[in-house]
Amino acid sequence: MIEIEHPGAFTTVQDLGRAGYGHLGVSRSGAADRDSLKLANRLVGNPEADAGLECTLDGPRVRLHRDCTVAITGAPVDIAALDGIEVSMNCAFPAPAGSVLQIGRAVAGVRSYVAFSGGIAAAPILGSRSWDMRGEIGPPPVAAGAWLALGDPTSPPPAVDAVPVPSIERAVTVTVSAGPRASWFTAEARRGLRTERFVATGDANRIGVKLRGPALTRQRPDELRSEGMVPGAVQVPPSGQPIVLLADVPTTGGYPVIAVVAECDLGKIAQLRPGDEIRFAFDGTWGREVAA
């Protein structure tokens, strides 16, 4: 078991989500920065899909009640300490029963991940232990005094000390493909998405991140009938300011999607802080849509 002594700002249990229930209105959910959770799990010898903690901006203080191996990944934090002694990120370290793990504030990015050997063994709902903040499904955000069970470790941690990870930058470029409704937008809007800089706003959570930039205007004023959405969809409400959808994506939406962020770059979106800059790089699909 682990005991939450202090929950931090918003700390949730996340695994890789519950895909397969979209037709019932249930989001995929799961870690917003999936690559970071997978890495944390690999470092402690867990299957990649095990559940860990997703910390948001300010991390928790956790007392361990069993010997285990721990790894912290994702957004770098100002303090990462075990019983007051600093521990490194992106590497596995042993944590004996009774020790206290403290995770401080993110100094870059937003979301840090903590994996424990054996994984967090909260009761799965629809096949996942992830908290979905939109659908309110899964174990609720951790609170002070909560105890979380750990599973049995399946294999020893791999013999690596640390792994190199790309640093989290305040200006990022993400690859996008043309969205299903790209042709609903003016040529200026499509060009603007490619050439202009956008800025992340504070209007951001696990559902999506609102960006600020040149207004993306439509050439087709028709009302869009609700259609299926995916994490990474760049949807454009009437204000023209795009929203990039994340893990707790509404399964259907009525705003046209101009572009879709490549899955391998979704973690960069999940780590955007207010004021961070974002540019969109287009893959080969864009030219075809513009010509249409």
Binding site: A19, S226, G228, M229, V230
Partner: peptide, 14 residues
């Protein structure tokens, strides 16, 4: 498929 999501006049297949 991983997910199949009908909309009003569409079906999204993941």
């Amino acid at each position: 498929l991983e997910d199949v999501i009908p909309g009003h006049q569409t079906v999204l297949m993941v």
